[in-house]
């Protein structure tokens, strides 16, 4: 499509031939590099998708267990301890740190959870009764949060990778141009097709209108006569019918 139009205006010398050859080589290398990068990213992307699926299913299970362990606590303590726990928690025991992972030049943030040992703000809650259940419940919930962090990390990576893959693929100039060309060609085809159809429709309309107008114009001058003949014809018809009926009567 862009063959003759897109041709670069080059002065035909040996020097510029060498230049062009170098350019082409560079472009080819760049293209293959980008292609490889895109493939590496896509591989990673698929891997993450699979892991997100796993993490989500795991989360479902873990959350269920955690909710149940809370039920155990309320059975053992015989009341609501939520308020007490909220009030006595001062420092975060469960913390998250971010790291960056480099996948062929793309920095992906990953969250890593760890527990700060020694922080145990409500260690004494349920001292009189239910303490063990509370501690157990805390551990279960810590595991649940761990899963959540893992999932969050994966999802963030997923979003970023998705964006990056798009960008990388776009930088693949050739395919992008081809795509654009195809799109442009298709668009033009569509437009011209539509135009053709519109023109045909309009032509037909105009033609019809013109014919009608012509006819009308042709009819207009002898209009009274035409009506007269029409009435005459009608009358004749009626009489005809009557005549026939009479005939019929006669026959009967």
């Amino acid at each position: 499509m862009s063959g003759a139009v897109g041709r670069e205006a080059v002065f035909p010398t040996r020097q510029s031939l060498g230049l062009m050859k170098n350019k082409l080589k560079g472009a080819e290398i760049g293209h293959s590099l980008l292609k490889r990068k895109s493939e590496a990213l896509t591989k990673r992307f698929r891997d993450i998708t699979r892991r997100i699926d796993e993490a989500k299913q795991k989360m479902g299970r873990v959350m269920q267990i955690a909710a149940f362990s809370l039920a155990e606590v309320s059975y053992a303590v015989g009341g609501d301890i939520g308020y007490q726990i909220q009030e006595s928690a001062k420092q975060a025991r469960f913390r998250v740190r971010t790291k960056q992972e480099n996948i062929s030049g793309v920095l992906l943030p990953t969250f890593e959870s760890y527990t700060q040992e020694g922080v145990n703000d409500f260690g004494l809650t349920g001292l009189g009764k239910g303490g063990q259940q509370i501690q157990r419940c805390r551990e279960t919930y810590a595991r649940a949060v761990e899963t959540l962090v893992e999932l969050a990390s994966l999802q963030t990576a997923f979003l970023i990778l998705d964006e990056v893959i798009k960008v990388v693929n776009r930088r693949d100039i050739n395919s992008e141009l081809d795509e654009l060309d195809r799109e442009e060609f298709y668009r033009l085809k569509k437009v011209s097709g539509k135009k053709k159809r519109d023109v045909a429709a309009a032509d037909a309309e105009i033609l019809a209108a013109r014919q009608k107008a012509e006819q009308e114009q042709a009819e207009n001058p002898k209009e009274p006569a035409a009506t007269a003949t029409a009435i005459f014809a009608k009358e004749e018809e009626t009489t005809d019918v009557l005549g026939e009926q009479e005939d019929n009567d006669v026959i009967f």
Partner: peptide, 16 residues
């Protein structure tokens, strides 16, 4: 007795 036992059991591993 129950309180004594529970308090003891629950205090393991805390700063009490």
């Amino acid at each position: 007795d129950r309180r004594s036992i529970n308090i003891t059991l629950n205090s393991f591993g805390t700063e009490l």
